[in-house]
Each structure stands twice: as C-alpha cells, then as structure tokens.
Design a protein around this nucleic acid. Structure first.
Lengths: 160, 160
DNA sequence: GCTGTTTCCATTGACGCCCATAAATTCCCA
DNA sequence: TGGGAATTTATGGGCGTCAATGGAAACAGC
C-alpha cells in the first residue's frame, strides 16, 4: 500500500513525542522523504502532512509562477514558510512544534487521518465533529445527485 | 532536504550577532557558497537571501535581458548594487549591516522565513501581518488553481 | 591607551538516541 | 486447530549531543 488510509489516535507523552502510525511510516519511507512534510491547513484547524510526493507537488505549484513575482513569494511564504520537516526518531515518533500544535488546538492526543496521498493531524474531538459534518455533507450531496448515481461520489476527493 | 523551509525567530545580541537557523546553514553549505547572499527585497520591507543557487538564478535573470538595455542596467543595479555577502562565523552566526537592518526595520529579533530556493529575513511583527496576508491571498489563488489542475501532480521530478 | 571586530569558551534547554515495558499481532509447530 | 513464542507497536524514561545565546579573550586600527 502506498497511500495513507484509516485513522489512528495516539497519545502525546510528557516530552511532546507522539508515535506516527506504523502504516503511515511505511508509506513515508517508500515516498523517499526522511521525515514528515507538515504545514497548517489553510482552511481547517488541522495539519496537512505527507512525504516527498507532497513536496514535489508544492514545488511544481510554486515553480509555475513567474520568478520574483509577488504571487510567487506569497505562495512560497504561505506554503514553505509555514511548513516544517518533522523528524521521525528510530522508534517511529515525532514532535510537533508549538506553532503547529497551536494551529490545530492539539494538546494531549492526536488523530491521524489518512487522505490518500497525504494525511492530516487533528485534535481528536475536533476531528469527530469535522467528520460528522463531512458525512452529513455527503448525505446531502447524495440527495441532490439522486440516489441512483453509482460510483461517482464517495468520501474521496478530500480536497484541501 | 535541499530547500529553505519553515520559519525561525532568533535574537540579535548586543554585538549585532544573530544565529542563522541550523537547517538553513546546512542548505547553504550544500549550496556551495561560504556565506549568505543577501539584498533588500524589491517590494517588501524584508531581506532576500540565499546561496549559490540564488546567485546563479539572478545572473540568469539579468543575462536574459537585452545587453545595454535600460532594463538590464536597472535590474543589475537594483540587485547587485544592493547585495552583500554576509559571512557566517564558526558558531553559525552572522551580522547584518545597518543598511540591511534599516530596510527591514529590524532591531532586536529576526524572523527567518524559508521560501524554498531562497529565504527572507523579517522584523517579526511585520512578518506576522505579511503572513496572514499571504495566506489569504493563497486561499483566493487556490480557488483559481484548483479549478484547473487536479491530481495530475505535474511534470516535476527534479530534486536532490 | 581605547574602540570596534572577530575568535574562542560556557551555559542552558531542546532534541536525538538508546533501552525497557506492555499490549497486540503474527507465526509456528506439535 | 489451539496455544505459546516471536515480532511489532505504542509508550515511558535516562542520557548525551547539538543549537541558540551570552560573555570573555585575542586582535586590529587609529
């Protein structure tokens, strides 16, 4: 499996360490980045994270803009400037900076949520409500689309 | 990682010294420039900085312009004329000239902001407002970008 | 002499590395 | 197939190293 799937909730210990789910670690290892590329989600109290693939994608996004344009600097500021490369120790644990924890309102526990090519980290209770909201949205959407449609919907397409 | 990523705020001591973030130093070292290439940002109260890669890029930019054209002279003046090579001492610290500090309004603290191929130095409070602007801009921008490119990842691949 | 600058050392706190434990899972083999 | 051994995973704690910072010592110039 080369995708981030499922959700896991782990504990942050007194030193601020938290175990990265084993399955996520193997995906990251295959992805070729020694660590986790992580930044605050632009529109949710959560953290976006991934491996080299995610980095490449963001690079491509920035490279497309004209050199020394205002847009390029702004995009780079918002993405690279707020990003961190989180190291993973040999026991599979990482440490989130104060800044990242603060953005997501994380204190004692973290919920890791697989989104395919990337994953997110949430404060567990916030994720609960986020999830039920999302599920409700999907139900509403299905009504509009008509119960007959097949294959199109799914909870996939977690955009960000 | 061979890119400038994340932000760090460090203190300037009584002698004007400030620690360059360790991760930035390793990027610079790999880049093959013994020091920091630095100049006032053209359109922000900040300082642009980087290593050999940035120097090369600016050279290319200037070379592309017609020889003896006004544009070329102006760009060359604006960039080369105001640039400095900042030395890094053996403890990883550097000293900003009065002129550079003045342009960015820096006095006691510096925020180092990674932008991928280069980084910037800001007065911390100015950077905060600059960042929230940039994030808002990207949220808007993303709607435009998001409509077109989906999934495809892009023709990226150059790395390491 | 002084003054400003660069090199070297000291402190402190954060982080990485190592080991230990316990629970859950997988594996093996009678 | 059932039970136990080996492995893996999540978690806790001790300790050495390194990064950031402050200050002293060497050194230059006038």
């Amino acid at each position: 499996m080369d995708q981030f799937v499922s959700t896991f909730t782990n504990k942050i210990d007194t030193k601020g360490r938290v175990s990265v789910p084993a399955s996520f670690r193997t995906v990251l290892a295959k992805d070729g980045l020694d660590g986790i590329y992580c930044y605050p989600s632009l529109d949710a109290p959560a953290l976006d994270a991934g491996g080299q693939r995610l980095v490449d994608k963001i690079n491509a996004l920035v490279e497309d803009l004209a050199p020394y344009s205002d847009e390029k600097d702004q995009l780079a500021t918002a993405l690279f400037g707020t990003s961190e490369i989180l190291s993973i120790d040999q026991d599979g644990r990482t440490i989130l900076s104060e800044r990242l924890r603060e953005h997501a309102g994380i204190s004692t526990h973290i919920t890791f949520v697989g989104l395919g090519e990337k994953f997110q980290m949430w404060e567990p209770r916030r994720f609960e409500s986020h999830l039920s909201e999302a599920r409700q949205k999907v139900r509403d959407l299905r009504k509009l689309l008509g119960a007959g449609r097949r294959g199109s919907g799914g909870p996939e397409g977690a955009r960000e």
